[in-house]
Nucleic acid binder design. Structure first.
Length: 405
DNA sequence: CGAGATTCATGTGAAGTATACCTTTAGGCTTAA
DNA sequence: AAGCCTAAAGGTATACTTCACATGAATCTCGTA
C-alpha cells in the first residue's frame, strides 16, 4: 500500500459512518451497571459477603459454573458495590482478584502468592526468593493494613490441577497467622468435579458457602445481547435475526455469554471494515470463524519454541498420513528431525510427552491414551482445529521456527 | 476354547540437574573529615 | 572512618532430564472339555 493510499484509507475511515457508538460495551473487560438474569446469585453473594461491611469476616465461597455464565462479572460487580459502600462508611475492605489461568503469571504456587503480594504494592522478583519468604512478605503486606480482604481466585481448578492444593490449604489457614486483618477466599471454578479431589480440609474450608451458576438459555442470552447491543451500536444497525442467531449459536454450546458478546462485536467490526451499513447474518458467520481462528493463531504464536516445534511435527505427520492415528513415538521422531533442521536442542521424549499433554490442554490438539494391546500404549493424537486454519498455523510455525521450505 | 500370563510402547511419578535469578555479606575502593 | 560499589557465596524456582515403575488390551500359552 503506497502512502497516498494510506492517507486515503485514513480519510475514508474517518468519513465513513461508524456502526458502533460505544464499542467498549462489547469488550471483554466491561462490567455492566446491571446484570440480567443473575439476581439470585448476586443476592446470595451479597448476602455472604455483607458481613465485611461490619468488619466481620465473611465465609469463604466456592463458585461453580461453566465459562461465560457470568461468574466473574457477578463477583466483580458485587465486590465493587461492597467496596464503594465500605469506602463511604469508612470500613476497611479490600479486594484482590487473580486469574490463575494466566500462564507465566499465576500458574505455580510461587507465582500466585507473588502476584497477590504485588497487588498489595510489593515488588517480588520472578524467581530467586524462597516460597516461604514470599508468603511472609504477603502476610506482612496484608497485616499492614487492618481490614477484611476478599481474595478472588478465578479458575482455581486450572491451578490445582497443575500444582496441587497446597496453596489453597495455606491460604485457608492464613487467618490464624494474622492479627490485624482477616481474609475471605472466593474460589471460582469451571470444573465441578475438581472439588472432589481436594484435600477434605481444604474442601470444607473453601466451600463454607457454595454457589452455582447455571448456563444461560437462548432467551436469556438474547436479553443480555439486546441490552448491550442497544448501547454499543447505532440504532437499527443490526439486521433482524442477527441477534437471535448470535444467541442461538452460543446457547447451543453451553450458554456462554462472553462468546456471544464477542461474536457480536467481531461481526460488527467485520461489517464496518466492509463498509456495510448494517450487520447481517453473513458477517456473523464470518465472525464465528474469525474468533476461533484468532484464538488458535494467537495461542500458537505465543507458545515457546519447543511447543511450536512439537506442534509442527504433529501437523506434518497429520498431513502425511491422513487417516492413520499418530502416536507419541512417531511425533518424537519427526520432532527430532525438526530440531536438526532448525538448530533447536532436542528435548527428551519424556518432556515431549508432557508438551503434547499441555497442547491438549490448550485445545489445539486432542489426545486420548489408548492401549494397543500387544503394541503397547500411546496417545492417539488428533488435530482439534478446523481444517481452514491449519495452513495459517503452518505459516506461523514456519516463520517462528525459521524453516525454509 | 477360555483363563491367565506375557508383551509392547509409552504413560507417569519421583528425584536429580542446569540455569537464571535473588539476597546477603565481605572486601575493596572512594571520599570527606 | 564512613559510605558506596562489586563480586562471591549461598539459596530458590523452573524447565528439563534420568531413572524406574505402572498400564492395559492384543496376543500367546497351556490346561481342559
Amino acid at each position: 500500500m503506497g502512502q497516498k493510499d494510506l492517507e486515503g484509507f485514513f480519510a475514508s475511515f474517518l468519513t465513513k459512518a461508524p456502526l458502533f457508538q460505544n464499542k467498549k460495551v462489547l469488550q471483554a473487560n466491561y462490567t455492566p451497571d446491571s446484570i440480567m438474569h443473575r439476581d439470585d446469585q448476586i443476592k446470595q453473594m451479597a448476602h455472604v459477603l455483607s458481613p465485611s461491611l461490619r468488619n466481620e469476616k465473611p465465609s469463604n465461597i466456592f463458585i461453580y459454573g461453566k465459562t461465560g455464565t457470568g461468574k466473574t462479572v457477578c463477583i466483580r460487580y458485587t465486590t465493587k458495590k461492597i467496596l464503594s459502600l465500605a469506602e463511604q462508611t469508612k470500613v476497611p475492605v479490600f479486594m484482590l482478584y487473580l486469574n490463575c489461568k494466566l500462564k507465566k503469571v499465576a500458574d505455580t504456587e510461587y507465582r500466585v502468592i507473588a502476584q497477590l503480594a504485588r497487588e498489595l504494592k510489593k515488588t517480588i522478583p520472578a524467581t530467586g526468593l524462597p516460597t516461604d519468604e514470599v508468603y511472609n512478605i504477603f502476610y506482612k503486606a496484608i497485616n499492614e493494613k487492618e481490614g477484611i480482604y476478599i481474595i478472588i481466585l478465578d479458575e482455581i481448578d486450572q491451578l490445582v490441577k497443575k500444582v496441587g492444593d497446597e496453596i489453597l490449604y495455606n491460604l485457608t489457614r492464613i487467618n490464624s497467622e494474622l492479627d490485624n486483618a482477616q481474609v475471605t477466599l472466593v474460589g471460582i471454578s469451571n470444573d465441578l468435579v475438581f472439588a472432589d479431589n481436594l484435600d477434605p480440609r481444604v474442601k470444607s474450608s473453601l466451600s463454607e458457602e457454595y454457589l452455582v451458576f447455571p448456563p444461560y438459555n437462548a432467551l436469556q442470552i438474547q436479553d443480555i445481547l439486546r441490552e448491550r447491543a442497544t448501547k454499543a451500536f447505532k440504532p437499527s444497525v443490526l439486521q433482524p435475526g442477527v441477534l437471535e442467531k448470535c444467541a442461538a449459536l452460543s446457547a447451543r454450546e453451553h450458554g456462554d455469554v462472553r462468546r456471544a458478546i464477542e461474536l457480536l462485536r467481531v461481526a460488527g467490526e467485520i461489517a464496518e471494515r466492509k463498509s456495510a451499513v448494517k450487520v447481517n447474518i453473513e458477517h456473523l458467520d464470518e465472525a464465528e470463524e474469525k474468533i476461533e481462528k484468532d484464538r488458535v493463531l494467537e495461542l500458537v504464536e505465543t507458545q515457546p519454541k519447543q511447543f511450536q516445534a512439537t506442534l509442527y511435527a504433529i501437523l506434518n505427520l497429520c498431513k502425511k498420513q491422513k487417516n492413520e492415528q499418530i502416536s507419541t513415538g512417531d511425533v518424537y521422531e519427526i520432532y527430532k528431525h525438526v530440531c536438526k533442521q532448525t538448530g533447536l536442542i532436542p528435548l527428551t521424549q519424556r518432556r515431549i510427552s508432557d508438551i503434547i499433554a499441555e497442547l491438549d490442554m490448550l485445545g489445539i490438539i486432542g489426545t486420548r491414551v489408548i492401549s494397543k494391546g500387544r503394541h503397547g500404549r500411546t496417545r492417539e493424537i488428533t488435530i482439534a482445529v478446523p481444517d481452514q486454519t491449519i495452513p495459517k498455523i503452518y505459516t506461523i510455525l514456519l516463520e517462528a521456527l525459521d524453516i525454509k521450505e
